[in-house]
């Protein structure tokens, strides 16, 4: 019964994310504030279903729902869309949805192909440290997804000759700072957890190495803004490179490189 309800919430959220994106696209193409406003409303509904699904999963699984691949991805989608809604209270910011909502939607579609079975929490996964590691890393990723979408918005508006694309440049920077801080905390807590389980703080396993590479790119972005005074186009391109590294760290490494992460799957 609860399983069916959870599945219903999952599909409901996915469909609403799809509709919200379609409305965002329509609002953007026809420059219709009404449609974009409706898109944000639909997205709120989808996001609430996503939150309810994650909450129900938490109750059913009896552990924080971030351990199986399905849980991880749906939780991530919730953070990405939540990140957009946080920025979308201003009307003008809503254009961000055109590029950020598909990230959330893609994550939900990706999750649709995964096993939805609940797996018990392995004894080595118990404890606050791992939960903090996963949560902070996901928050870092979600914040950079905002940076990415804002950078695309900036590039689009700049190309269109908009008078004030700088709003999105500012948004990208603010989100980047959160992303860097959270990813830093995520890497530190991950190292501490690895130490408790494997006896070593750092292994240079591919996921760790690519997290470090992503962290270096985030760091380069912030330094480029601070010391080289990079703004606008150049910063936006670097933000997109950072997002590509993030996607590779998150998805590409799992498929292409053997690693310690995903003990449950890989062991």
């Amino acid at each position: 019964m609860l399983e069916t309800l959870e599945l219903g919430l999952f599909w409901g959220a996915t469909v609403l994310y799809g509709l919200a994106w379609a409305w965002h696209l329509a609002g953007w193409k026809r420059a219709s504030q009404a449609r974009t406003g409706a898109a944000v409303g639909i997205l709120w509904a989808g996001w609430l279903l996503n939150v309810a699904m994650v909450g129900l999963r938490w109750v059913r699984a009896e552990h924080v729902p971030m351990l199986s691949a399905f849980e991880f991805v749906t939780f991530f989608a919730m953070l990405v869309v939540g990140g957009f809604l946080l920025f979308a209270f201003r009307e003008r910011n809503r254009m961000l949805g055109v590029f950020l909502v598909p990230v959330g939607l893609l994550l939900m579609v990706y999750a649709a192909f995964m096993s939805k079975d609940i797996e018990p929490e392995l004894s080595i996964f118990k404890g606050l440290l791992l939960q903090v590691h996963i949560l902070t890393t996901l928050l870092g990723y979600a914040a950079w997804a905002v940076t990415f979408a804002a950078s695309i918005c900036y590039l689009y508006l700049e190309r269109k000759g908009d008078k004030n694309p700088g709003l999105f440049d500012q948004m990208a920077y603010r989100a980047a700072f959160f992303a860097f801080a959270f990813l830093t905390l995520g890497i530190i807590t991950g190292a501490l957890w690895g130490d408790r389980v494997f006896g070593q703080l750092w292994f240079w396993d591919p996921k760790e190495t690519w997290s470090f590479i992503t962290w270096l790119i985030f760091m380069a972005y912030l330094h480029a803004r601070y010391t080289l005074e990079w703004r606008g186009r150049r910063a936006a391109i670097l933000a997109i490179v950072g997002f590509a590294a993030l996607v590779f760290t998150y998805v590409g490494v799992d498929f292409l490189l053997p690693q310690i992460h995903g003990v449950q799957e890989a062991q």
């Binding site: 240079w204 591919p206 190495t209 690519w210 470090f212 590479i213 270096l216 790119i217 760091m219 380069a220 330094h223 010391t227 080289l228 490189l257």
Partner: peptide, 29 residues
């Protein structure tokens, strides 16, 4: 000098990426 810091950062990133894609024993240690 930024003229040194930036190439250092780029070189470090490039070595790390290469070392990850084409594993070299003990490179990172």
């Amino acid at each position: 000098s930024l003229k040194v810091a930036i190439p250092l950062l780029v070189v470090l990133t490039a070595i790390t990426i290469t070392g990850s894609l084409f594993p070299t024993p003990d490179l990172f240690w």
